[in-house]
Amino acid sequence: MAFYVDITRCIGCRSCEVACERVHGGRGHVQVHFVEDSASVPLFCHHCEEASCAAACFSGALFKEDTRTAFDVEKCTGCGLCSLACPFGVVWTDKIAHKCDLCDGRPEPTCVATCPADALSTDLDHLSRRARSRGARAAAQGGRR
């Protein structure tokens, strides 16, 4: 499982950041970036298929478990290799590593549930279906006016 963002929907409200921080004891795993005052995007763990953070982790704290990149805080020594191994810069280390746990134990990741603009999903098909139907309708109307 991973998150997908519909960039055209993101409004940069940073709700995902605040919500993530709220359910993770004050240390969040999402960072919203703004680009040229024209778009925003939340950056978070992709739960990469070939997770370089897990590859760099020597202690076994980070490991693949089905489709997610899981984290066992008990094994983490805070060495920081994972932070340096994340191509997207979304694993932080502060004595221990902080990364997305997909809100283990909750029905849905909090960032997804809380997104006011409905921009996040754990279901890529859902987002791409939505985008495709939007594109098809725009085309049927002779393009966007």
Partner: peptide
């Protein structure tokens, strides 16, 4: 989008169905 953020989800839903959105504001 900043002041009543949840309203955005409904606007996007309309856009998905082909709605045109016009915004008048002194600021982008």
């Amino acid at each position: 989008a900043e002041n009543h953020p949840v309203v955005s989800r409904w606007i996007h839903r309309a856009k998905d169905a082909g709605a045109v959105v016009i915004v008048a504001d002194p600021r982008a």
